[in-house]
Design a protein around this nucleic acid. Structure first.
Length: 547
RNA sequence: GGCCCGUUGGUGAAGUGGUUUAACACAUAGCCCUCUCAAGGCUACAUUCAUGGGUCCGAAUCCCAUACGGGUCACCA
């Protein structure tokens, strides 16, 4: 009885070899410098901002080098599967214009290195495991959960390093005859990798972000195939898939750093070259006095849906993440305002190796700048698209009269330094509602210094009778004339010199005009608002204050 | 607990032994501009790079120790 017999017993239906698969998936014919990256989420119904940041890095590296960015669905844990999770990931990637070059979605396979869904790759994994068994680098383990728990307790009580290694790896000592007999007997088993490592020995590992690391060798016999005798664990699938799919750069969270010794040993066992690794820092969150990993349960901003729902332009989210990815991005972008972030050359060595707090204030700032630079058409398109998904009220406002809506968006837009007051599309309604008669039903007027009803009436009446104009050149001069006539200072400097000579100043007069028209004390350029509203509607709103 | 990673201001950070009296951006505060607001302009904001030692003519930058924070030790990825 040999290892081959054992392998044959476990996988009788597997006839292919590793070489067969290497022929099926030949090395990619791309330039030497081209990178192949992958986004490999597990479909748990949620897109985490940290994962998304990694996807951006994957995407940028691939685009930087004329390489390939592909999506792989890591669904080896059936228990955590959530319906619709794959759709959510695809939608998210599409929303951000990050459609992968290769992927598998709804029976559609794009790319020659699939299947891109791990649960459809069983035969491949089995072939590779069969090979490992036949060369004596993997074996069946019959330990029950109880036995393993007992082992762990024992290890803890004796303060020895926990895990299935060395003398604790009971099943690696079983003879082949014994193994075969127990399998024939129907005993449940998993397949474990047989480690040759020595924990006390170190090896050099280069992480593209952190640089040279001295890590302990792995000596744990990890499970590579679960007891369903079908699906592999992450560690094994990672090695097989990234080899076969030709991944050159693996971008993943820092939490994986402690498993690289396992992965490296497995790559070695097959004689495969391991990819480059970029272990990204965690995104953190300040919680009181301490910082912690941003959490799906506690922090809504951990989910990408948070940004979609509030209506941040996708580029704002991307750019804010780019500043974390490479902090020199912002300066580069200022120097190259017309270039896409995909032209920015990502450098893992410039990435911070400590966790970063994601700053929502910064996001707002970036977003305001981006929105201020959009044309009214672009803002209209984008905000309308958003409203259709997230805001019925904004949607109906827009649909009532798209041209009117655009004219409002255009206030203080087409100028050298455009207005920056919208950070996200959910802000819009609260900024423009008073421009709509059917929404305009104010209960509170934010009057300034002038509150006397008679005075307000007088200002409004006089304005409409004698000084009204929609000509932007003339507009403010007329307001000044109005101020003069009613005893308010039209010149601020004069007013500051002798405030007692006047009832107030031209700002007070303008405030009355503004509040009586919008109920708001803070609005964009009043002349532009008046132009959009038109004389009739202005008169209608003003006349309600007449005495 | 073992192993690994990290620690520059409120935040992201630049910085790799000598024009660093520590860039830049956000936030905050003040002033200016101004019909309000949003902007914009100007100014302020770390005598100091977690702490303590050391190496050196010279250290945020190199070395050691300590402290603190994080990750990981699953048939989860």
């Amino acid at each position: 009885m040999t290892n081959k017999d054992l392998a044959e017993l476990i996988f009788p239906d597997i006839n292919k070899t590793i070489e067969d698969y290497e022929k099926m998936y030949p090395r990619r014919t791309i330039e030497e410098s081209a990178a192949v990256t992958r986004f490999a989420p597990s479909p748990t119904g949620y897109m985490h901002i940290g994962n998304f940041m990694q996807a951006i890095i994957d995407f940028v590296i691939a685009k930087n080098t004329n390489g390939i960015f592909y999506l792989r669905n890591e669904d080896t844990d059936q228990a955590r599967q959530i319906d619709g999770a794959v759709e959510l990931i695809m939608d998210n990637l599409n929303d951000y214009n990050m459609t992968p070059d290769e992927y598998e979605f709804k029976d559609q396979v794009i790319g020659n290195y699939g299947p891109y869904i791990q649960s459809k790759r069983k035969e491949i994994y089995h072939t590779f495991i069969k090979h490992l068994i036949s060369i004596g680098r993997a074996y069946p383990c019959f330990c029950t959960k109880e036995e393993l728990d007992e082992m762990r307790e024992f290890q803890e009580s004796r303060k020895v390093r926990p895990g299935y290694h060395g003398a604790f790896a009971k099943c690696r000592k079983l003879s082949i005859e014994e193994q075969i007999e127990r399998i024939k007997n129907g005993d449940a088993y998993v397949i474990r990798f047989k480690s040759n490592g020595d924990f006390d020995r170190k090896f050099r590992f280069i992480d593209e972000v952190k640089g040279l690391l001295m890590l302990n060798e792995n000596d744990i016999d990890d499970i590579i195939m679960k007891s369903d005798n079908q699906l592999p664990t992450y560690h094994f699938a990672h090695v097989v898939d990234d080899y076969l799919m030709g991944t050159t750069h693996v971008i993943r969270g820092e939490e994986w750093l402690s498993s690289v010794s396992k992965h490296i040993e497995m790559f070695d066992a097959f004689g495969f070259k391991a990819p480059k690794y970029i272990h990204t820092p965690l995104i953190l969150k300040k919680d009181g006095n301490s910082t912690r990993k941003i959490s799906k349960r506690k922090d809504p901003e951990a989910s990408m849906s948070y940004y979609s729902e509030l209506g941040y332009p996708t580029m704002a989210v991307v750019e804010s993440l780019m500043t974390i990815i490479n902090s020199n991005y912002e300066q580069w972008h200022d120097a190259n305002p017309d270039k896409s972030y995909l032209d920015f050359e990502y450098n893992p060595k410039k990435m911070s190796s400590s966790g970063a707090l994601y700053d929502l204030m910064k996001l707002d700032d970036i977003s305001k700048n981006i929105i201020s630079k959009m044309t009214k058409e672009e803002l209209y398109e984008d905000s309308y698209k958003w409203s259709k998904k997230y805001s019925d009220s904004l949607k109906s406002i827009i649909e009532k009269d798209p041209e009117y809506y655009k004219s409002i968006l255009n206030i203080e837009r087409e100028q050298v330094k455009p207005r920056k007051d919208i950070a996200k599309y959910s802000d819009i309604e609260g900024l423009i509602w008073y421009m709509y008669d059917d929404l305009y039903n104010p209960t509170d007027y934010e009057w300034g210094n002038v509150t006397d009803k008679n005075e307000i009436s007088k200002i409004l009446k006089t304005y409409m009778d004698k000084y009204f104009t929609l000509d932007s050149e003339e507009w403010f001069n007329k307001v000044k004339e109005l101020a003069d006539e009613l005893g308010y200072a039209s010149n601020m400097k004069d007013y500051k010199k002798n405030p007692d000579n006047y009832k107030g100043n031209v700002a007070d007069v303008a405030t009355v005009l503004r509040v009586a028209l919008t109920s708001q004390s803070r609005t964009p350029d009043l002349c532009q608002i008046m132009n959009i509203l038109g004389k009739d509607r202005i008169l209608e709103r003003y006349s309600s204050f007449y005495k």
